[in-house]
Design a binder for these strands. Structure first.
Lengths: 230, 230
DNA sequence: GGCGATCTGCGACTAAGTCACATTCAGCCG
DNA sequence: CGGCTGAATGTGACTTAGTCGCAGATCGCC
C-alpha cells in the first residue's frame, strides 16, 4: 500500500469537503486538524483486508472505493461504496467495538483521504457533540442500509435486482461498460445466471450485448421488471 | 402495547443488572436513575415496528425479544435477539442517527426493561465516559454482526445452518421444542425445505421428530455437517 | 368421540447456483 | 496478414432452495 503524507500548505482546507464538520467547536477543530494526515491510494490498490486491525478513522475527500465481503466459499458481495464526503463506516465500527475489519476495501479510482489516529478519534467522540453527531449519523445510515441489503440479497429476485443495477448505471442512455462477471459480483451472484438473464433480455429486444458492454434499448421493460418483484 | 410504570420501592437496584454501568460516575448515576422508568411487556407483544420513531433508550433487565426484518414479499429474517444485560442496539442507532426503526421487535418471553428518555440519553453521552463506553461498545459490534449474518444467510447452505441452530438449541441433550415453521423463520428460510432436511436426518437416524419437537441422536453427524460447508 | 386449528408430509414446479466445457473475441506478436 | 493467447461469453446438465397446492396427522377442547 503506497501512502504519501501530504505537504502542509493549504492542507487545513480539507474540512470544507465535509459540511457537517463546518460547525465543529473551535477546540475540536484544532484537535482534528493537528492530528490528521492525508493519505492517497491509486486505483486498484487495497485499502484494507478482512481481519486487518484498524488504527485510523478515515474521511474520504475524493475518489471512490468499494467495500466488499469475501465469503468462505469464494463468493463475493459488494456491500457499499465510499465516495467524497463519506466516512469509512466500517472503520468507525472497528474503532468503536475494538474488532477487526469484517470486509475488504479496494480503490476503484485514485483516492485522497484524511486519516485521524484512533486516539484522536476517541477523544473527539468524547469532547465534541458535532463530531459525535457526524460519526453516528453515518454509522446509523449504513446500519440501516446493511439491513436493507440483507433483505434485498436474500429475498429479491435476481432479474429485478439486475434490472435495477443496469438502469442505475445507464443514466442518459450511455452504455454500461462492465463484464457480466463483474456485474454478477456486484449483485452477490455469479456469471452464469446473470449472463442467461441478459441473453433473454437481448432476445426480447430490451438490450443489446457486446463483449464488456451492454446498452439499454427498452427502458420501460426494465423499469417494470424492477418494480414488479418487491 | 401494554406498559406499566414500575413502583418506586427497590427500583434503583436495576443498575446491578448491568455490570458495565456499575462504575458509573455518581452524578451520571443520579441523572440516569432519576430519568428512567420501568417498562414491562408480555410475551407476544410488539416492542416496535419498522418505520416507528424512537424516543427512549432501552436496557433489558429480564426476558428475551427478537428483532426481525419483514420483507416486502412476506418473508422474514431474525436479525438478532436481545436478552438480559443487553441494550437494544437498533434503538441506539435510531436515537443517535435520528432515523426510524429499520426492523421490528417482538417479545418472546415476558419482558422487564428500563427506558431512558432520548434527551437524558444524549445528556449522558455528553457527560459520562462510562455510559458512552457502554453504549458504543454494544453499538460497534452490531454492524459487524449484520455483515456476518448477510454472508451466512446468502452464502451458507441451509442444511449447515440448520445443523448449527439445532446444536445450539440442544445443550445437554434436551430436545428442541419448536415447530419446523418457526425454525425456518429463524433461518430466513421456509417450512418445506427445512422439513425435508429434518425428515432426511430422521431417516438417517440422526434425529427423532415429533410434532413441535425434535431430539438429537447423532450429535457428531450434525457437527460434521455444520462444519464442512464454510 | 368429534371438531377445528395447527403442524407436517409430499409432489410438481420455478429460481438460482455449480460444474464442465465449447465458443467467440480483442489484442498482440511474428 | 494469420495465428496464438487469455479473457469473456454461451450452454447444458445437475443440485439446492423456495413456491404452491393439497393431503394427512395430531393436539387441545368441548
Amino acid at each position: 500500500m503506497t501512502r504519501y503524507i501530504g505537504a502542509p500548505g493549504h492542507w487545513r482546507d480539507w474540512v470544507t469537503h465535509f459540511p457537517a464538520l463546518a460547525r465543529l467547536e473551535p477546540a475540536a477543530r484544532e484537535e482534528l486538524l493537528d492530528n490528521s494526515f492525508e493519505v492517497r491510494l491509486a486505483a486498484g490498490e487495497i485499502g484494507y483486508r478482512e481481519g486487518d486491525a484498524c488504527n485510523n478513522f478515515i474521511l474520504r475527500i475524493d475518489g471512490w472505493s468499494r467495500i466488499q465481503r469475501l465469503s468462505a466459499n469464494g463468493r463475493e458481495v459488494l456491500l457499499y461504496r465510499v465516495g467524497p464526503g463519506d466516512s469509512c463506516v466500517l472503520t468507525t465500527s472497528c474503532l468503536l467495538g475494538v474488532s477487526r475489519y469484517p470486509a475488504a476495501s479496494t480503490a476503484e479510482t485514485d483516492l485522497r483521504e484524511v486519516a485521524i489516529a484512533g486516539a484522536t478519534f476517541r477523544t473527539l467522540l468524547n469532547t465534541s457533540d458535532v463530531f459525535r453527531q457526524f460519526v453516528f449519523e453515518h454509522y446509523g445510515r449504513l446500519l440501516s442500509d446493511m439491513i436493507a441489503l440483507l433483505d434485498e440479497l436474500k429475498f429479491r429476485r435476481l432479474d429485478a435486482r439486475l434490472a435495477d443495477l443496469v438502469l442505475a448505471r445507464t443514466d442518459g442512455g450511455s452504455p454500461v461498460e462492465d463484464t457480466q462477471s463483474r456485474i454478477a459480483t456486484d449483485l452477490g451472484s455469479t456469471r452464469e445466471p446473470v449472463g442467461r438473464i441478459l441473453k433473454q433480455w437481448e432476445r426480447k429486444g430490451w438490450i443489446t450485448l457486446a463483449r464488456g458492454r451492454l446498452e439499454v434499448v427498452d427502458r420501460e421493460a426494465l423499469t417494470a421488471l424492477a418494480a414488479d418483484q418487491g
